[in-house]
């Protein structure tokens, strides 16, 4: 029990260090940027017509005149206390902007993550258990094509198909245009979420299929499956009794490690559907030079990714009896 605790603690410390490094890297990247937030958001002509004092006031607001190390320290100090600064474009605390955007995205991301994981896992097992047959070839080809399709292009095609031609689904946003927040029904939310979820689940599926298929092939070649066949077990029995039990854990790990990909995919997909989520906020912040918001989003999404990895490590280390034993022997 103590060893388990130490293992978790070690992973946790590692995650904290990585978080710290990520924040430094992200901060470094945004502060070396030659993009002058004054010019982007105030405009060259407006700057020209302002007095020196006004410009100084603005440059204080956008924080362009303090040294980067001091800025990092004060930013990191505030960040730990939960104050991520004020978004320059939205003119609201970054934590609130991220909170709103994240709550828009989270459900969509979560559902797509679950769908792509479950469907990918099942398809991978089907393909692996039917090696070389038509079903396997079909599923493998599907995995190859989805791995090669740009998510945002697929989103465009769906938009064209369902939004423009068939007119059965709305073409963007997370709620209908021109309705008040109180009048938005759950039905509206679901209708607006269908296409993004569909796109993300379809494109995020391929690595899961390929991975599960490989593992399933290994299992099917193993001696214990041969023995099971000799005992007269049917294909379904073998898959359920020996296949899934052996490949569920690595698949779970992969699933937790794929969080980063699905967040990345959502940045593009949200852009296509004008879905007001965290990805779209990141793009707006990046294009508009809203440094606090961009930083906040980078650090928060890194935190989500690391939490996923952390969970995967724990799952692997604690749940898998083989690894647990190996660790105890060292």
């Amino acid at each position: 029990m103590r060893k388990e605790f130490l293992f978790i603690l070690k992973n946790f410390v590692r995650m904290a260090i990585l978080m710290f490094l990520v924040s430094i890297v992200a901060f470094f990247l945004v502060s070396v940027s030659p993009i002058d937030p004054l010019k982007v958001n105030v405009g060259q002509t407006a700057l020209g017509s302002m007095s020196q004092e006004q410009i100084e006031k603005l440059s204080q607001y956008w924080g362009t005149s303090i040294s980067p190390v001091r800025r990092y320290l004060s930013w990191a100090g505030d960040f730990i206390r939960g104050d991520m600064g004020v978004s320059l474009l939205y003119r609201q605390p970054v934590s609130r902007v991220i909170g709103v955007k994240l709550s828009n995205s989270l459900l969509m991301l979560g559902i797509s993550w679950l769908i792509s994981g479950i469907v990918g896992f099942s398809l991978g097992i089907l393909a692996g258990a039917n090696r070389g047959k038509r079903l396997d070839k079909g599923i493998s080809a599907y995995a190859l094509i989805t791995a090669s399709t740009p998510a945002f292009w697929l989103a465009l095609v769906f938009l064209m198909l369902f939004g423009v031609w068939l007119k059965i689904l709305p073409i963007g946003l997370s709620v209908p245009i021109g309705t008040e927040a109180a009048e938005v029904t759950i039905r509206d939310r679901i209708l607006h979420g269908i296409l993004p979820v569909l796109t993300l689940s379809i494109t995020g599926i391929s690595s899961m299929i390929l991975h599960t298929r490989e593992k399933m092939l290994e299992v099917m070649e193993s001696d214990y499956v041969l023995f099971a066949k000799a005992r007269g077990e049917t294909g379904t029995q073998i898959v359920l009794g020996h296949g899934i039990r052996n490949i569920l854990l690595p698949a779970l790990t992969l699933q937790f490690a794929s969080i980063s990909e699905i967040i990345g995919g959502s940045v593009l997909v949200e852009q296509v559907f004008s879905y007001p989520g965290i990805g779209q906020a990141a793009v707006t912040a990046g294009l508009g030079g809203d440094v606090p918001l961009l930083l906040g989003i980078a650090v928060i999404s890194a935190a989500i990714v690391f939490t996923g990895n952390f969970t995967a490590n724990i799952l692997y280390g604690i749940v898998d009896p083989r690894i647990r034993k190996a660790r105890n022997n060292i």
């Binding site: 260090i17 990585l18 490094l21 990520v22 890297v25 992200a26 470094f28 990247l29 945004v30 070396v32 940027s33 030659p34 993009i35 980063s260 990909e261 967040i263 990345g264 995919g265 940045v267 593009l268 990141a282 793009v283 990046g286 294009l287 030079g289 961009l294 989003i297 980078a298 999404s301 890194a302 990714v305 690391f306 990895n309």
Partner: peptide, 25 residues
């Protein structure tokens, strides 16, 4: 392996946005 984890920690497209931002888009 720390470096690998670090680079993989930020979602890839977001990292590209950050780098592109750092170099002036």
């Amino acid at each position: 392996s720390g470096l690998i984890d670090l680079v993989m920690g930020i979602p890839h497209i977001l990292l590209l946005v950050l780098i592109s931002f750092a170099l002036g888009k």
